[in-house]
Amino acid sequence: MSAQFLYGGAGILLFALGLWSLLVHEALLRKLIAINIAGGGVFHVFIAIAYRGDTAPPDPVPHALVLTGIVVAVSATALVLALHRRLEQAEEPAADAEVLSESASASSAAPPPRTPAERTPGTPHPETPHG
């Protein structure tokens, strides 16, 4: 029982730590690490409550839930990073173009941002709303 609380408590601390970092830090990568640590904390709580001492076998149900959670977390991480990369490309057209023209070897330059040559349905206009 005490081990469950010790480990489960650590999970809760990790969740709070991740949440704090998510709210405080601006850089996307730091937010992503924060959310993964918070997630690790929640998974840790599940693993801790599945543990039933060294004699009884652990509860397999929370284990399976955590496995699912890990896969979901890595899927989300991959999507977040892809969106972030796309955002970087979109935000730095000028800088990248310079890199392209300055460096003689085109092969070493970053690819230019995607220009929508495809027909784009709808044409949203930038207006940054204030929440």
């Binding site: 693993i47 801790a48 599945a50 543990y51 496995l67 890990i70 896969v71």
Partner: peptide, 21 residues
């Protein structure tokens, strides 16, 4: 905590793939 399956998965998927990304 006697969760070897999940330990493997976390090392390979969480830390491994997530870290590589």
């Amino acid at each position: 905590l006697r969760a070897p399956d999940i330990a493997l998965a976390e090392a390979a998927i969480g830390a491994g793939m997530g870290g590589a990304l």
